[in-house]
């Protein structure tokens, strides 16, 4: 029972979370950014599940993870639609080109 403790889950989710952030920031492609976000969401869902298992001992944590997953799915749909329209409009989906909001 040694290592399947909450610490390891925390470390895994932390790792996932950090890689998620790294990907979101460094990727030039919008889809890359989207992947980073998915990783972050996963890491948080994992965390919820881990805590629900190890400390809260009730299922609410898991329930919350489910919510996160559902939202992630919704978000993916929207992201896809946006990407399609951006692609059609701008011709490519390079994040740097989309700076019309530049100050």
């Amino acid at each position: 029972m040694g290592i399947i403790a909450i610490q390891s889950y925390l470390i895994i989710s932390l790792f996932l979370f950090l890689m998620g952030i790294f990907t979101t920031i460094s990727r030039k492609n919008i889809i890359g950014i989207f992947m980073g976000i998915e990783l972050i969401l996963n890491s948080s869902a994992l965390n919820f599940a881990a805590f629900s298992r190890f400390s809260a001992h009730n299922l609410e944590g898991q329930l919350f993870s489910i919510f996160i997953i559902v939202i992630a799915a919704a978000e993916a749909a929207i992201a896809l639609a946006l990407m399609l329209s951006i692609y059609r409009r701008f011709g490519d989906i390079d994040a740097d080109k989309l700076d019309s909001l530049k100050g």
Partner: peptide, 18 residues
């Protein structure tokens, strides 16, 4: 100057946020 920060690039925002 701040405007320069508003590069329009999303990641820059995230970076600043974090």
């Amino acid at each position: 100057q701040l405007r320069k920060i508003q590069t329009g690039r999303i990641q820059a925002y995230v970076m600043v946020l974090l």
